[in-house]
Structure formats: structure tokens, C-alpha cells
Design a protein around this nucleic acid. Structure first.
Lengths: 337, 337
DNA sequence: GACCCAAATTTAAACGATTCACTTTCAAAC
DNA sequence: GTTTGAAAGTGAATCGTTTAAATTTGGGTC
């Protein structure tokens, strides 16, 4: 009981395989009556097109890959949903890979995407994979960088002005009267983290404020945030900051959790500001002030850029869409009183 | 500059294509020196195996599909991570589809998975897709149901005893002295919702408590929870419940948000219990009591069941792993005092 | 009735890896 | 010195679809 193929369908419908293919792909005019017969045969046999064969012949897959830093972070799943929504309008589908901030896993997914000849790739890179991405592009799979402003200008990109975001965050903390700030953030190698902390330092020096204490973390997850907070708690009381700028909301949640657990009052003793404005930050034990990034729109826009490149493979006119971050003030930085 | 293929590699290495394939697949003994030459050629040409061709010949993909109800729900991404971790040990990769509780989207992903001849599928079904799944299995792609206890016993499954979970939730609410309960939950058609509410009603009648009010929602997302809460707020004060059992934590968060916004005190006026025990429920404005499901382990276990079926295609001995739910008490049901 | 044209359909050649039946090689055994 | 057999390597056939060139069909025109 082997699965039916185009030949079986053609035989049952009394046409040639070419006609079946034409019906399948609407690539050529087929008489309505013939098309009906072919569809009947397809239904009767339960024929499902073998995508591997199609792909081998055509040279490209109809799916687009997306690689995110962390599927557990709602910011990235929102991006993925934006991309998925946009893609389904183009009749393509999305396959999602999760690098989990792990460079080895990232490479192994890149292998997969490359072997699969995906028609395009959206990626927030972890490791140093630019040359891999260039190869991918040169082989016909355009790449759009997400949440990363690429200086080299060899790829289209969608990003948020993270430096400005960092500035906004620190300015807000200074505005509400905080003086001893700390930045708690993921590996410095992650560009977003670097940009946000640079913006923070810019704002500090612009305002002539006291230097910001840097606490570096291994990852951008909540558990790392707890570790970072514990480092702050271990400081002599005089050194302890009165405000924390967390590199993202998950870290902010971890910091909040650790501080609250240690009996520190938020925001009275220490204020907290996060980044991303995920749903759960707004609904945290103490609603967290954050820098909003338009995740869904970023996913959608990245997809549109990608589709433009897919449609016009010769295109060398890389576009860079930069969204502006937005401050959302909540209880973690301002006392309700 | 067409991409290199096995023939090019073979030519450069001075061997036949068969030997290249043997090196690629470790399927036959190849002399170390020959293997080295082949690898050198691969590196020099930047050869990337064309997976479509491989798949066409072999008849099956090396990837496993997973279809989740909602990528925005951390419960499902935790399952996916469990699956991914387990799969990577078997040298396979995962492609993730998001049905978003939408039956049409579910079907379109099933088409994709079927066309791709995935080597297996993990799925939490939305619509009535059992016959589709049977076809998939009969064509050589085993299917394991996730978070769904299948009576028909035609698939292996991993699930949680949701009826027991519903019972636990209601018993807890009664134990802390609540008498007027409400169940706020997603579409009744979703099996998990049905089981949880049945368990709730069982506990009610067992204890001889007052009947539980049912509030039915369209989805299992937080916004639906807010809508549900508003229905409760619209009730005459005498009818208003003093405890809410939400079908999952996202709904519980929505309910919490709407109640708090309306000035209702949680848990004093109304207690809330959720389901899943996602990270963000534990860290909500008022930490939410929940029924824990071991998501990561479920993903891992489902994968193991799937791998067993893949390894032994004749297997008709479907296994059903049922995890036990666990009550986790937090502030949303018991006053700190 | 010969001719032309467009529409509909057919046919056969790809696409690139894997596989399996078949050589070749070479050392050990008699 | 012949035989044997395991190890290493070869190469043609194959998987199922798409596609482009070729062919058929059937009016419409003169």
C-alpha cells in the first residue's frame, strides 16, 4: 500500500503527469473539466504531494526559517507570530529554530536550514555567523537580521534603537530621583545588551550622574537575573544601588523576585526597569516599568523585507527598518503614592 | 557558481559518488585516508548536502514536527524545549508549528508536515483530526498525542490526569473556606478544559458543595480571562463567586488583572487558582496558586515514545504515560496573614 | 478544404543523494 | 602457487515531482 504519487493520480484521472502537476501548481491553463477529474482522483487516492521531490526539482523550499534566541521569552514568540501571520498571507510557512543563546545549537540549526534550502531566513544571531549567513544568501536564501542593527550593511534588518532605549531607561531612573544605578545584563557579546548598556552610559555622562555599576550575566533569562540581584545584595549597604536597569524583562522579573525575597522594597529601596515590555512584566508582582519594543510588528516587517528579497533575487538594496523604543512607566519605578 | 553536489566532491576527492555517500552516512566502512580526502573536498567546495534529494531517495525526513496550541503560552514552549532536548540526543531536529487554537491553521500545518514526510509528529490537537493523524501514521509518520488522553488507544500519548487536577483545584478552594465557586475556561471542545471542569464538578458533588458556576470562554488566553472576569463582575453581588478556578494560568492572569482593576481584593474577596504552573503565574501581581503540570518532562517523554515507534515501525503497542498533577499553593488563594 | 492559431495536453529530461549488486585488491591459508 | 574471503570502492538505477519543448485538438478565416 505505497502512498499514491502523481503517476497514480494521472492514471486514475486519465491524463498525463504533466497535467496533474499543472493542476497542482496552477502554472498553466487546464480545462475545468480536466481539473475536476484530477481533483477527484487526488481525493480518491488520498494523494499528498511529496515535497522533497518538488523541492529537489525546483531547487528551493517554500518554507522560511526563523531562529530565535529563546523560545521561552515571549518577546521572541511575539516576533515569530508576527512573521507567521505575514507569511501565511504569502502562502508560505515558518519553521522555528531555537538557539537558546547557544552558539553550537545555532550552528546546528543553520546546517539544517541550509540542507533544507529554506527560501529565506529570519535570524537573531548569537555567535559569529555572518559568513555562514552570507553563504546562505549567496546560495539563494536571503537573510534578514532581526533585532540587530548590522553595520556592515550586507543584510536587510529590522531593529530597535537599543542605544536610545538604554538612554530612555536611565533618564527615567534619574528623573524619578535615583542616583546610584546598576545595569544587570546578559553576555556583553550580545549586541542588544551592548547597545542598551552603551545608551545607559551615554545618558549617565550626559547628565553628569554617578557612574553606573555593571553586573554581567551569562544569559538573558530570569534565573540569571536572580543571580545578578544576589550580587547586588552582597554589596556593602553604602554601595548598594537604588535602581536597576535590567537588559530585558525576564531578567527584571528575576531581579524583582530575588529582591522581594530578600525583603528589599521595590521601588522604595530599589527601583527596577526592564526592556521588551512583555505581557508578563506588566502583570508581575510589582508591575514592571519597561522599554517597549513592537515585537509583532518587527516580525511582520522582517518578513516583508524578506519577501521583497525573495521576489527579486538580484536585489542588493538592503533596507534597515529601525523602530523607536518607548518608555512604559509602571509601579516598579514610581511609588503609587 | 552552482552549489557543489556529491559528484563534484567525488571528482575532487578522486573517488566515486558512492564513496562520498558512504562517508556522509557512515553507512559502510571507508578507509580513513579516503574519508579524509573526501572531507577535505567537502570543505574546499563548501558542499552542503541537499536534504530534498536525500529525503526523496530515503523516503523520510529526519525532522520531527510538533504542533502546539499556543506558542505564546510558556506551558507549550516548555514542552517544546523538552522535546527538542530529547531529540537532539537522537540527532534529529524539531520543527514547530503553532495552531493557535485555530482548526484551519492546524490543518494547514498538518498538510505541511505530511508533504514533508516528517519522521514523526507530536501534537496537541485542536480540531477533529484523528483520521488525518491515522493516515499520517499509516504512511510511516508515527504520532504521539501530547496533553491529551486518548480513549481510542490508537496512538501513544502523554498526558496529565486533568480530571484529578480539576478535583485538586476545587478541593483546595473548598478547604480554604470558599463556597461559591466559578469555573472560567476555554472552549468546552478542548478536551483538557472538559476534563478539568468535570473534575471540578466531581469534587463539588463529592463534598456536597454548592454547584459551580460555569463561564465559557472562546480561547485559553489572558484576554479571554479578562472577558470572563467581567462577566463575573456584572453579576448581582449575591451571585458573585468568592473563588475562581481558571482553566489555565494565562486565563488566571487575565482574571486577576480584571478583578484587581475593578478594585476586587484577591484573595480576600475572590480567590483565584490557575492551571499549568507557568513561571509567570508564580511571579504575578499576586502569586497565583496553580496545578502544576511537568511540561518539560512531558515533552521529553513524548519524544521517547515517538522514538520508540520510529525505531520499530511495526509497533502497535501504544503506551500512555499519565503524569499526576500537583497543587502549588500561593497567595491568590490564601491570605498571607 | 487548406491554413493558422491558441488552448490543452503530453512527453521525457532533469534535480542530487542513496543503495545495492558488482568489481577489485590483497593478505592469509592451504 | 592457487584459493578464499573480507574490506574497500564503483556506478547505474532509483525516488516523485516540475518544466520546457513538442504535439494534438478544434475552431475560425480566407
Amino acid at each position: 500500500m505505497a502512498a499514491a504519487n502523481v503517476r497514480d493520480v494521472a492514471a486514475l484521472a486519465g491524463v498525463s503527469v504533466g497535467t496533474v502537476s499543472n493542476v497542482l501548481n496552477q502554472s498553466k491553463r487546464v480545462a475545468p473539466e480536466t481539473a475536476r477529474r484530477v481533483h477527484d482522483a487526488i481525493d480518491k487516492l488520498g494523494f499528498i504531494r511529496n515535497d522533497a521531490a518538488r523541492q529537489l526539482r525546483v531547487g528551493q523550499s517554500r518554507t522560511v526559517g526563523i531562529m530565535v534566541l529563546d523560545v521561552s521569552n515571549p518577546f521572541f514568540t511575539d516576533i515569530a507570530r508576527g512573521a507567521e501571520d505575514a507569511l501565511s498571507q504569502h502562502g508560505r510557512s515558518l519553521i522555528l529554530g531555537n538557539s537558546g543563546e547557544d552558539s553550537a545549537r545555532e550552528l546546528s540549526y543553520l546546517d539544517l536550514f541550509e540542507e533544507q534550502r529554506v527560501s529565506g531566513l529570519l535570524i537573531t544571531p548569537v555567535g559569529n555567523v555572518l559568513s555562514r549567513l552570507e553563504r546562505l544568501r549567496d546560495r539563494g536564501s536571503p537573510v534578514v537580521l532581526v533585532d540587530r542593527h548590522e553595520n556592515a550593511r550586507t543584510f536587510s534588518s529590522v531593529s530597535v534603537d537599543d542605544q536610545r532605549g538604554g538612554q530612555l531607561a536611565v533618564e527615567h531612573l534619574l528623573d524619578v530621583g535615583r542616583t546610584k544605578l546598576a545595569f544587570v545584563g546578559g553576555p556583553k557579546a550580545v549586541l542588544q545588551v551592548a547597545d542598551r548598556s552603551r545608551g545607559a552610559r551615554d545618558a549617565i555622562s550626559e547628565r553628569g550622574a554617578r557612574p553606573i555599576r555593571m553586573v554581567e550575566l551569562d544569559t538573558m533569562r530570569a534565573d540569571a537575573g536572580r543571580v545578578g540581584a544576589e550580587q547586588l545584595l552582597a554589596l556593602a549597604p553604602a554601595d548598594r544601588p537604588d535602581a536597576v536597569f535590567a537588559a530585558n524583562d525576564l531578567i527584571a522579573l528575576g531581579v524583582l523576585q530575588a529582591l522581594t525575597h530578600a525583603g528589599v522594597r521595590v521601588p522604595d529601596d530599589i527601583a527596577i526597569i526592564g526592556y521588551d515590555d512583555i505581557y508578563f512584566a506588566a502583570n508581575a508582582a510589582i508591575p514592571i516599568t519597561s522599554i517597549r519594543q513592537p515585537a509583532w510588528e518587527m516580525g511582520r516587517t522582517a518578513t516583508e523585507l524578506l519577501m521583497a528579497e525573495i521576489a527579486d533575487p538580484g536585489l542588493r538594496d538592503y533596507r534597515h527598518v529601525v523602530f523607536q523604543p518607548e518608555l512604559v512607566v509602571r509601579a516598579s519605578t514610581v511609588s503609587p503614592g
